[in-house]
Write a protein that binds this DNA or RNA. Structure first.
Length: 217
DNA sequence: AAGAAATACAACCGCGAAATT
DNA sequence: GAATTTCGCGGTTGTATTTCT
C-alpha cells in the first residue's frame, strides 16, 4: 500500500523560489490564510509541492520573521534551551524529539530551520571551541563541568543557570501548536487588545523570558 | 585573477503523529 | 478500529557566496 505522495512530482518546480512564486504565495496566504497546504499550490497557481509552499512560508515569507544575525543573547538562549529541552524531553518523553521547534517557540521571529542551521554552522563550533560537547554540553574530555576550561566565568555560569526553562504543557483544543496569535501578526501582541496572555495554547506567547537575568548588560 | 576550499543557509526527503474517512 | 490523508518535524543535501591559496 504505502504512502501517497504529497503532490505530483512530475509537474512541480524544485530549487530556489523565484520572486514571482513568492508573491503568489504571499498574496494567496494573505487572502485565504494558512492551512490546507496540499491544495494550496493549485489554488495559488504554483507549480510547487504543498510541503514546499508550507516551508517557504513558515521559514521565509511569514511577516513576523526576524531576519539577520543572531544576537549573543539569542545564542546563549539557544544553547541553554538545547541542553535543557533536549535532555528533558528525550529523557522523560523519549518518543518526542521536537527540540528545534520547542526552541523556536521561545525565540519569537526565529524558525526551527533557521535555528537548526545556525546551530550546525556556528554554535556547534563555538561550543567545541570552548571544549564542550555540543550534544551533551559537557566537557569533551569528561569529568565535571569546569567553567574555566570552557571559557565561561563562574558568574556567567551561574547567570545561565538562572534562566527559567519551565515548559507549560496544556491540552490542545485542536492542533493548537499551530495556532498563531492574530494580535501577534498585527504587532499589538503586548497591548490590552491581545487576549493571549490568558491562553496557554498561543504559540508565540509561550515565550516569556522570566529569567532573573535580564538581557541587558 | 582564477580556481579550490570552506561556509552559510535554503530547500528537499522520509518518517511519525494526528486528523479524517 | 482500520485505512487513508495531511501536517509538521529533524536530518540531510544542494547551491550560492565568501575566503583562501
Amino acid at each position: 500500500m504505502g504512502r501517497t505522495p504529497c503532490c505530483e512530482k512530475a509537474h512541480t518546480n524544485k530549487g530556489t523560489w523565484t520572486k514571482e512564486e513568492d508573491q503568489r504565495l504571499i498574496s494567496y496566504v494573505r487572502t485565504h490564510g494558512e492551512g490546507c497546504w496540499r491544495s494550496l499550490p493549485k489554488a495559488a497557481g504554483l507549480l510547487r509541492c504543498g510541503k514546499s509552499c508550507r516551508l517557504r512560508w513558515i521559514n521565509y515569507l511569514r511577516p513576523d520573521l526576524k531576519r539577520g544575525n543572531f544576537t549573543d543573547e539569542e545564542d546563549e538562549l539557544i544553547i541553554k534551551l538545547h541542553g535543557s529541552l533536549g535532555n528533558k524531553l528525550l529523557f522523560f518523553l523519549s518518543s518526542i524529539t521536537c527540540r528545534w521547534s520547542a526552541i523556536a517557540a521561545r525565540l519569537p521571529g526565529r524558525t526551527d530551520n533557521e535555528i537548526k542551521n545556525h546551530w550546525n554552522t556556528n554554535i556547534k563550533r563555538k561550543l567545541l571551541g570552548q571544549g564542550l560537547d555540543p550534544r551533551t554540553h559537557r566537557p569533551v574530555h569528561g569529568g565535571s563541568h569546569d567553567s574555566q576550561s570552557s571559557g565561561v566565568s563562574a558568574d556567567e555560569d551561574s547567570r545561565r543557570s538562572n534562566l527559567d526553562l519551565d515548559l507549560t504543557i496544556s491540552l490542545p483544543s485542536s492542533r493548537s501548536s499551530e495556532t498563531i496569535c492574530f494580535c501577534y501578526h498585527l504587532g499589538i501582541r503586548s497591548s490590552e487588545a491581545c487576549s493571549c496572555r490568558t491562553s496557554s495554547s498561543m504559540r508565540f506567547l509561550s515565550f516569556q523570558h522570566t529569567s532573573s537575568t535580564s538581557t541587558s548588560p
